[in-house]
Simulated scan of single mutants.
Amino acid sequence: MGEARGAAARAGVAAGLVLGAGACYCVYRLARSRRAGAAAGTEGAASARDGSAPGGGLLPRVSGLSVLSSLAWGGPSNLQSDTDLPKSPSNLDAHHLQKLIHLLELTDDPLIQEQALVTLSNSAAFSVNQDIIRNLDGLSVIGKMLSNSIPKVKEKAINTLNNLSMNVKNQEEIKVYILQVCKEIELSPLNSDLQLAELRLLTNMSVTNDYHHMMTNAIPCFLHLLSEGNERTQIQVLKVLVNLSANPAMTRHLFSAQAPSLLSLFDNCINKEILLRALMFAANLNENMKNEEGIITQDQYSEDSVFSLLCGHSTQYTKKLVCLLHHHDTEVKEQVAKIITQLRGDTKTRCSGKLQ
């Protein structure tokens, strides 16, 4: 019997929130199943017995999701990180959320931390819980997990803040983590789930102009990821860049950034989701430049700057736009036509190298 207790299996579920520019939706996913065979007397085994761990206590009760052992799934190798959960958890009571937050504060067990964060993340998909978690000082407790050395725990903390950031009042508190998240994006493994989660949080936090100035120093990193990342990373980076480019106050910061491979995105063979966002990014900057007060001179910017590539004398860019007019997708052609119209309207000032 003692041996059976010592071999208890534990598993976790994860949740993420994806926000497009101005639109959002929640996707609940099964992220991890982990079998922990712990010897009797270890901290993990003791937690499972006293009900504070997922095996038979608070977490499965408040999440509304069964905690399954890896054996029930045929082992961890049969699990996929993008398996959709059959249903979302129902709203939790405030006392349940308070216990989860308290548990997160007290435990050093990374598996319990991970699963507590998953449950909080799922519950944060409901607007009423977003306020409750903030009022229980849950944001600061979750925020501390961003400094956790274990990537999976950090990722779940980011996902939780991601859902909580759908609330304007929560954003006012979450903003203190923006600089840290920007630095972590650069340090995270390229195309990793952690890096994508961090970019999603910045997407949410950049929907309004309020916190754009806090992301200024990360613009070179965003453009680097745009050239080095895979399609998932490129799409997420472009969501942030489109949001930033919609703010006239960010125009000069974006113009001065180096992006030697940016024009490679303006091609008929590029994924439509990437191409459309790249075109929106360019159109926003053109619009901002047209309304810019003062003078912008081309000699302010280097040859590989965003300004020189999109608003300078780049014949390569012009040729790419003309080719894209024959794209099979109507949305793409409309965006291209908009940009060409913008550029034609600015021909005289651009030829002189100045924008009045």
Rank of each mutant, 00 (worst) to 15 (best):
L68R: 15
P86G: 12
K152I: 03
V141C: 02
S47L: 11
L111Q: 02
G57I: 00
T42P: 02
L92G: 09
R61M: 06
N78R: 13
H102W: 14
G51T: 10
A36G: 09
S33M: 11
D82G: 06
W73I: 06
S77C: 14
Q130W: 05
G75C: 05
T119R: 14
D93I: 02
Q113D: 06
R32K: 13
S52G: 02
S47G: 09
L136I: 01
I132N: 09
H96C: 14
L65S: 12
L117G: 05
T107E: 04
N78A: 11
L79I: 10
Y28F: 08
D93C: 06
P110F: 07
K99R: 15
G41S: 06
N135I: 03
V141G: 00
A125G: 08
E114Q: 00
H96Q: 14
M145T: 09
P60L: 10
L79V: 08
N135M: 06
R35K: 15
L68V: 15
A40D: 12
G75S: 13
G57F: 01
Q115Y: 04
P110V: 04
L59R: 05
C26W: 14
V67R: 04
S121P: 00
D84A: 12
L139N: 01
I101A: 01
Q130A: 03
L65D: 06
S33W: 12
L139P: 00
N91P: 01
L68H: 15
A45W: 05
T42Y: 11
N78F: 04
E105N: 11
I150E: 12
S121H: 13
S127G: 04
N129Y: 03
P54D: 08
G37V: 11
A53R: 02
S77V: 14
S52D: 07
S63F: 06
L59S: 09
G37K: 12
Q113P: 01
